[in-house]
Amino acid sequence: MRRIWIVGASSGIGLSLTQSLLQEGYLVVASSRTAEQSDELTSLKKQFGNQLQRLNIDVTQTDGLAAKIDQAWAFFGGLDIWFYNAGTYQPMSFDAFDYASFNSMNAVNYLGCVALMVAMKNRVIQTPEIKMRWLWNISIASQVGLPYGGAYSAPKAALLNLAESIQPELEAYGVTLQVINHGFVKTRLTDKNQFEMPGLMMPDEAANKIVQMIHHKGKSFEVTFPKKVTVFLKLLKILPYRWVFFITRGLLK
């Protein structure tokens, strides 16, 4: 059976993915800041027993991450997949900008993943026989900066850039790194949006797409969904800036 560590598993996509993979027979380590206290994960624990292990982790508390990795690794005698899904979001207009919000989103959406990666580095280098997959749930927001979302999308873009830069090196160590750039998914984060979200998906729909990705034998670097939204934003990325700003000005309230 496959062993997966889901960081960001107590709600939204992470919780739906945890449930789906347990039903598929995976051994799952579910982590979040309050994974061990989560009512939803407690219920799954009662249903699936030792197939599910819960581990509290705060990715912004970097001093203790190496120990957390050791715990996650020990539950099932190793890990096959690490799924980074932790994220935070607060839409902000320029007149509401504050450093604390930028710092919080950068700490979780980018540096939290970096901190775990660095703490896991020695295991990758010292045990190349373990062919791990790293799946980073980023966002199609990483493709282009949109009004009111810059504090969220900037660290997401940084994470995507990092993934692009290290993928060839990781491949040499037997690690397959893949990114997921999806559109709008109904979660406690997107509930903060005050605009119509095209292509809005439910968490279980997004989780099913990710399960299909995990099962697929192909090793494509990027998976995107839903297509209409993701293709549109990818097109924005390659248009001249004067066209992009003409379009995004129309999104201002």
Rank of each mutant, 00 (worst) to 15 (best):
S20H: 02
F246P: 07
S101L: 06
S153H: 07
Y148T: 14
L146C: 00
I4M: 11
P226H: 12
K156T: 12
V185S: 06
L189V: 06
G12D: 10
D39C: 03
A74P: 08
F94W: 14
A67D: 09
A86V: 13
S220Q: 09
G12I: 08
L21E: 08
M132Q: 13
I138L: 05
L52R: 08
G64T: 14
G183T: 04
Q143G: 08
N85C: 11
V211Q: 00
A119R: 01
S16C: 01
V28G: 11
G64Y: 08
Q37P: 07
V244K: 07
G174E: 01
F221L: 11
Q167W: 14
Q126N: 15
V118L: 10
L177C: 10
Q167V: 12
M1Q: 03
M120D: 14
N106I: 04
P203C: 11
R2P: 15
S38C: 06
V211N: 01
A163V: 08
A67F: 05
Q71T: 11
F94E: 15
N161W: 11
R54G: 01
A154L: 12
Q53W: 03
G145P: 04
F221M: 11
Y99A: 15
L41A: 07
Y84I: 02
S32A: 15
D95N: 12
N208A: 14
I69F: 05
S165R: 10
V244N: 04
N109P: 02
Q126W: 12
G77E: 01
L79F: 06
F184S: 04
S32C: 11
M120H: 09
Y26I: 01
E196P: 00
C113G: 12
H216G: 15
I214Y: 02
G150H: 05
D63Q: 15
Y26Q: 00
